[in-house]
Design a protein around this nucleic acid. Structure first.
Lengths: 258, 258
DNA sequence: CGCTAGCTTGATCTCACTCAATAGCAGTGG
DNA sequence: CCACTGCTATTGAGTGAGATCAAGCTAGCG
């Protein structure tokens, strides 16, 4: 079944000042709503890198909000291989879609060691019944995921290897910017070149070549899990990156491309 | 702005016995709920093949339920080309996600001449406030789309040309089965080989070759907008098609692969 | 009848994959 | 301390799936 390692208490979480990150992604969430949602947190968990947090097909009655670390969504195909279909950064409600779906069509795994907040579906039920605005807000959050899925499809079907990697880096930068984990040009990205390859449907070998090209073009460099964007406007341009699908506020959207 | 061609009245729609199709896709929707939703229909529209029903970025206050014909979702990239990210069949609530999002990150267009039911967001608002179960049901429907997006990503990133086309045909067969538009082995598919190419990220030339292969393998044939599956189990097998992501009831799920 | 859209087939090309060798680096254990 | 293992990244050479280019075919239609 699900593997868990309870380590942090809710109090520890507060001490880590994670509420700064918590739900920042849900722009325009009123303070009262945020407090109401935070009050519904029923616990904190951690997972080690590589652990599966939610297994495909298993009925679930909780949802997880990622506070620290990176997570993935991947389908477990009949061939047994892992196929990435999503990447999550701190502030993402990684499996809120399990609330309406009740069982997932894919696995959710920890890419790095991660910390998550746990919401039981019973508690979410109450929140949703009590506060129609917050309910719509949660629905909105799940639709953000879908919008990112669509852009992922676009990336795979219409962009070259170089563009795909550039586009992905632009997206991650924008999403991390929204939660204060990128300064707009540089951020920690705890992924290997093979991971990036899975995201962009490329081999690790080719990712290496593409990253070299981006470096030689003076656009960005990726070294030891850290991305440095040297020319964001240029990077966004070759990637055909337009951040509208992230539904950021205008200020952030502007910073995401220049 | 949005182009519309009002042609049918709600009465005409009833006369067409479309309520058989209407929302069939939303399995397990109680009769009372279905009636409540049908009561919220505020009109019927038609679009001609090629028309854009919803434009990216434009604020919207209605959502459309597809009753007849096929529609697409496609992102309008900076390069000006159309990039498909979704296909809709009758019974699909094509832009219900606009209810929480309020503006879309992509266009919705008519692949064929289509008929849709119109729901205003004001009316949906009332439905959602009055009936928490139906609200969750609507949320669920939008998450089905997301699940299909994920499988689309999987298809593009992990399957060969032959497998992609086979997988897509299996998916359409399953979805049409759910609304009674496939008998389980044969159905009308009003798409050109170029359309299929856009779905599978292949050229029309290569789609032609792949379809020939599928024909020669005795798995299925596609001629004059009609698909005939000769060996569904075989087709599903080579496509690594597993219908779990469609959240069909067990009976339909079984028929979707054999 | 000619025109257009869609489909088919062949020849050639190319982007990214595969295979293979090498190097750096962290951890582990003797 | 070094030796060893495993993981990650890099670079080169050869390969292949699918794209591109081009020509011809078919069917519907004004």
């Amino acid at each position: 079944m699900r593997q868990r390692a309870f380590c942090l208490t809710l109090h520890d979480l507060d001490a880590m000042q994670t509420s700064a990150v918590l739900l920042n992604r849900t722009t325009e969430l009123a303070d009262a709503e945020r407090r109401r949602l935070e009050a519904a947190i029923s616990g904190v968990q951690t997972f080690r890198a590589g652990q599966i947090a939610v297994r495909q097909g298993v009925p679930i009655n909780i949802s997880l909000l990622l506070v620290d670390g990176f997570m993935t969504r991947h389908v477990d195909a009949p061939d047994g291989k892992r196929h990435l279909v999503g990447v999550h950064v701190p502030g993402d409600f990684v499996d809120l879609h399990a609330f309406p779906l009740k069982r997932l069509d894919h696995d959710v795994g920890a890419l790095t060691d991660v910390t998550v907040c746990v919401f039981t579906h019973d508690d979410l039920e109450k929140v949703v019944c009590d506060d129609i605005d917050l309910a719509r807000r949660l629905w909105f959050i799940t639709m953000l995921d879908a919008a990112q899925h669509r852009q992922w499809i676009y990336r795979l079907s219409s962009l070259s290897a170089l563009q795909r990697v550039a586009h992905f880096l632009c997206e991650v930068n924008a999403r991390l910017l929204a939660v204060g984990l990128s300064d707009g040009n540089s951020f920690a990205l705890p992924m290997t070149q093979s991971d990036i390859g899975e995201v962009c449907s490329l081999t690790n070998v080719h990712v290496s070549r593409v990253l070299r090209n981006l470096r030689e073009m003076g656009l960005c460099q990726f070294r030891s899990s850290h991305v440095e964007i040297l020319n964001l406007a240029g990077l966004a341009e070759i990637a055909l990156f337009e951040p509208g699908y992230l539904y950021l506020n205008p200020r952030l959207a502007a910073r995401a491309v220049a």
